[in-house]
Amino acid sequence: MDVSPEIWIEKYRPKNLAEVVGQQDVVERLRSYVATKALPHLLFTGSAGVGKTTCAVALAREMFGDTWNMNFRELNASDERGIDVVRNQIKQFARTAPLGDATFKILFLDEADALTQDAQAALRRTMENYAETCRFILSCNYSSKIIDPIQSRCAIYRFRPLTDEAISEEIGRIAKKEGITVDEGAYVAITYVSLGDMRKAINALQGAAIVSDHVTAENIYAITSNAKPQEITDLLSRCLEGDFETAERMLHGLMYDKGIAPNELLNQLYREISRSETLDRRLKVDLIDHLGEADFRMSEGADTDIQMDALLARIVRAGMN
């Protein structure tokens, strides 16, 4: 028996590039760097939980073997975002010689888009001056937040959100190793709540597995405080049919009986509406505008009950036109 339960994200983080799922293009290129022991500066872009950090660590492990820990350093730029971190910490690491038989070190700078413009400007020459001893891997959510001179110095890798298949595959593998059973419906639920984010998916799985060895869709939605997609679809169609009373009752059921937060409901409604293929386009845009207004008002501190009810009323009216 484990003394303290380990977090699965870390437990099952791929140790080498071959284990990384769902980013074939990227992984293939990275492996060729390992094969030739040559590496330019890299810029990884992509949303959360798609494998940026995993790939960087796996690359370093394969590149350096046993000494990877000494020649690889991870810095999170969002902790310290000023120019001083570049001038002190980063330069300090970059200018010392690599250890063992490695010919260079790797500095992984997570959330590099959180660095201020000043700091990024300082970084660009550091990257060039110490290119002999240190390669940089920058990771960010939006490459547009990285200044052009840095983009120009890096090979850019765009990580895509993981496909549902890739997530299911990984979930299946973990479930097998942990000896838990996962319903067919639960796979669908996990891919629905995770939106291509592996971290979310594995967390949902682990959360549900704590409740029961048998993971069901019901569990997944409950543990992640999501409404079932069908419930959202029903809520929306009640409104558009003009049945405000039933819709309101359903809404209260979701908010109070199931404890789903209003902004989570908005997220799900937004997803349902914007992906719908049956709604008239103008109606769709009107609905999105209503959602946005409600979202904004609640974020400003307006009463969630009133705003959510008012939102339903607006949707009802929009459906009547």
Binding site: N263, N267, Y270, S274, R281, K284, V285, I288, D289, L291, G292, D295, F296, S299
Partner: peptide
């Protein structure tokens, strides 16, 4: 930043 998506929807879909 959640509000971004509404902006994007309004300018493209809208």
């Amino acid at each position: 930043f959640t509000l971004w998506r509404y902006a994007t929807s309004m300018m493209t879909l809208g």
